[in-house]
């Protein structure tokens, strides 16, 4: 199992670094449409490796751990790097680069509530018809 955990950590780090370098950089060069297309650049291949090929060791009977988890943590720990025409520039600080995470916990808390609502709504839709809800 520890081998699978290491592979999962590698796959998650690939997704996290890819997202927070490619995304802000494409955004810098192509604005909003760049941000939109950045999704198609990194997310599909990261999904294919992490979930379709199963790099992240999700148990079929377990709750789902999405690659979004290491992606989100990557930004919290390492911040965001934007490659501009002048080279790599730090766009946001993470804990490792001296950012203060405490004010951001407000966003995380509000987002947590919203995410639970979204998960509940999805469950209602997906379980409809399977049993009387």
């Amino acid at each position: 199992m520890w081998k699978r955990i290491i592979v999962g950590a590698f796959g998650g780090a690939f997704a996290g670094v890819g997202v927070f370098v490619i995304w802000p950089s494409v955004l810098y060069h192509l604005n909003w449409w760049g941000g939109f297309f950045a999704a198609g650049t990194i997310i599909p291949i990261a999904w294919f490796i992490n979930h379709f090929c199963g790099a992240i060791p999700n148990d079929p009977e377990g709750s789902w751990v999405d690659m979004a988890f290491p992606i989100g943590l990557s930004a919290i720990f390492g911040g965001i790097v934007q490659v501009t025409k002048d080279g790599p520039v730090r766009a946001a600080h993470g804990i490792f680069t001296g950012g203060n995470p405490l004010p951001s916990m407000q966003t995380l808390a509000v987002q947590f509530v919203g995410a639970c609502i979204g998960g509940l709504l999805a469950y209602w839709l997906l379980s409809a018809g399977k049993k009387e809800a």
Partner: peptide
């Protein structure tokens, strides 16, 4: 709310964990 970036990815993780647990 702060300098440390909270990505929408954390919402995806929480929401999918909740949905799959339900």
């Amino acid at each position: 709310a702060g300098d440390v970036w909270i990505d929408m990815a954390m919402a995806a993780f929480v929401g999918l964990f909740v949905q799959s647990t339900l």
